[in-house]
């Protein structure tokens, strides 16, 4: 599903976030991406999601060479990937349900069908009762779940999560992880960047460890 070969990412200024990294991820895998902060976890996720281009090397995701992709093709590629951010990146000027409807609107899905799917996604993350609320009135855990609902509403085959449980207490974190496992069980490939090692031990899955932009354990 994802194949990286000799991928290097150097930022302007010379900082090398990833160095000649090669990695294969099969469809349906649950992968924990670990490493100290600054090890290159976020960069790796950004490269896979086509948010940034690699400096060298190739990244192939679902058969598409991400680094060579044309700008006009990017939006369509990104629609196949659910992104979950540590800072949620919610839109606070619209209701919970409108946040979840946004990816569907972007894909041209509007009306009753879209509303049904958005409610189903909210139901999955346990926010169905709050669809009219504003995201700002939600707790940190609820905001993270809203972010997940938005990521899964268009039913992507690949979910990328950057520190999804970083700001949550352990009960909330377990909630979120249970959700992820449920998605994984229905065939979604999951790549979760985290430094919470306890969590990994509880949930199993493959661990990919990074240090200073290099692979330590795959």
């Amino acid at each position: 599903m994802i194949e990286l070969s000799d991928v290097t990412k150097r930022y302007p200024g010379g900082h090398e976030a990833l160095s000649e990294l090669s990695l294969k991820i099969a469809q349906g895998e649950l992968i924990f991406l670990t490493g100290h902060s600054g090890a290159g976890k976020s960069t790796l996720l950004k490269l896979i999601a086509a948010l940034e281009r690699p400096t060298s090397g190739t990244i192939v995701v679902t058969g598409q060479n991400v680094g060579r992709m044309k700008r006009a093709a990017l939006p369509y590629f990104r629609r196949n990937i659910g992104l979950i951010f540590q800072d949620h990146k919610l839109l606070y000027d619209r209701s919970v349900i409108d946040n979840v409807l946004l990816p569907l609107h972007i894909q041209g899905m509007i009306g009753a069908d879209a509303a049904k799917r958005a409610r189903a996604a909210l139901d999955k993350v346990g926010l169905l009762g709050k669809e009219r609320a504003r995201p700002i009135t939600l707790s940190g855990g609820e905001q993270q779940r809203l972010c997940i609902a938005r990521a899964v509403v268009s039913r992507p085959a690949l979910l990328l999560a950057d520190e999804p449980t970083a700001n949550l207490d352990s009960a909330y974190a377990r909630d979120i992880m249970d959700m992820f496992r449920a998605f994984n069980q229905v065939g979604v490939t999951l790549l979760i960047a985290t430094h919470d090692l306890d969590l990994i031990h509880q949930y199993g899955g493959r661990q990919v460890d990074l240090a200073h932009g290099r692979l330590v354990r795959a």
Binding site: L51, P75, F77, R78, L91, D93, P103, I106
Partner: peptide, 16 residues
């Protein structure tokens, strides 16, 4: 800006 950035992240075309 935030709204545009988020929309871009989740696959909005320039046209959208």
């Amino acid at each position: 800006r935030d709204e545009i950035e988020v929309a871009q992240l989740i696959g909005a075309t320039d046209r959208f």
